[in-house]
């Protein structure tokens, strides 16, 4: 029973400033949001400020310092001939490159790919989904095209695109974005289809609100919460797919360190020197976990309909 309805005789008093606190307060109270957000902020900070955190050139090859274990110290010689002492916190790989520096710089690629893919697929997904949800005759055509796109495996598409153009961050982003778009389109379309049947949209229509304004004012804002949540899941999966692509050698060129290609190169010596695979792996797992936790927290606070706790606001 809904206890928030009416109290007899209390018709003229308003329920007071919301039984439900503002969105930001509720977000700040959610532990998934707190932990996921904090871990993600740390990772962003660390990879963004990598040059200030005692790193050296992640691509610097130094045969003298090959296969050092974590915590070993040594002498780094730059290409200019300069040399200085350095502690290899996470060891080095078989070319003598510093894993600590490579992992921090590699984080940049992962985060950029994750965020860009999420934003791009949301952007295109919203545009196409809105069109499919509003323009009846376009719906069938668009959705069949989307079904077709969904049938292409992302990794296969990436291999084809790399063969076609060249390995670059944009090729990777495009290759991961394309298969994600149909999922967003489906979500947006179903949201639009249900929201446009809501009485408040009909009311706006009977008030003479033009269709375009209706979209922006009444329909889009009500799709935001589920879309933000979907965005975080796309971000997490894009980070994983990028690592897989780099691991398979169809992602970024090997001179750019990414978590995927650090692991790919380290796997040959995994039995002797597991740290080559272990550390980028831990960072990857941590990032994906943090993004997913953030997504779960956002879902629980912003969109109670999909919440597993089933609590209505």
């Amino acid at each position: 029973m809904d206890s928030a309805v009416t109290e007899p005789g209390a018709e003229h008093t308003i329920a007071g400033p919301a039984a439900r606190p503002a969105v930001w307060t509720r977000l700040a109270r959610n532990w998934s949001v707190r932990i996921g957000g904090a871990v993600l902020a740390l990772l962003l900070l660390a990879s963004g400020a990598a040059p200030l955190l005692g790193t050296i050139d992640p691509a610097l090859i130094d045969p003298v310092n090959r296969d050092l274990l974590p915590g070993a110290t040594g002498e780094v010689m730059l290409l200019t001939g300069e040399s200085f002492p350095h502690t290899f916190w996470l060891g080095t790989d078989s070319y003598g490159r510093d894993i600590y520096s490579r992992v921090l710089y590699g984080g940049r690629v992962s985060l950029v790919v994750g965020v860009t893919v999420a934003l791009l697929s949301l952007l295109f997904g919203i545009l196409i989904g809105l069109a499919a949800g509003t323009i009846r005759w376009l719906d069938g055509v668009l959705m069949r095209v989307m079904d077709g796109l969904m049938a292409i495996p992302g990794i296969l598409l990436a291999i084809a695109l790399v063969a076609l153009w060249r390995a670059s961050i944009w090729t990777v982003i495009v290759a991961i974005t394309i298969p994600e778009i149909p999922r967003v389109v489906r979500l947006v379309r179903s949201l639009v289809l249900s929201i446009r049947e809501e009485p408040y949209v009909e009311a706006a229509r009977s008030l003479g609100t033009p269709t375009a304004i209706m979209m922006v004012r009444h329909i889009l804002p009500n799709t935001v919460a589920p879309l933000i949540v979907q965005g975080t899941y796309i971000c997490a999966s894009a980070i994983l797919v990028e690592a897989i692509l780099s691991f398979l050698g169809v992602g970024l060129p090997t001179d750019v360190p990414t978590w995927g290609n650090i692991m790919a190169e380290g796997r040959l010596q995994f039995q002797q020197y597991p740290h080559n695979v272990l550390f980028p792996g831990i960072f990857l797992a941590l990032t994906v976990l943090a993004v997913n936790m953030l997504g779960d927290g956002l879902r629980d606070t912003l969109d109670p309909r999909f919440s597993k706790h089933g609590e209505r606001p």
């Binding site: 009485p199 408040y200 949209v201 009311a203 009977s206 008030l207 003479g208 004012r217 009444h218 009500n222």
Partner: peptide, 22 residues
Amino acid sequence: RAFRRKVQVVFQDPYRSLNPRR
């Protein structure tokens, strides 16, 4: 549009006939 101005509707469900975000 001129017609819309002259004829208005009040719906059944008071919880769904107002946009929650406005």
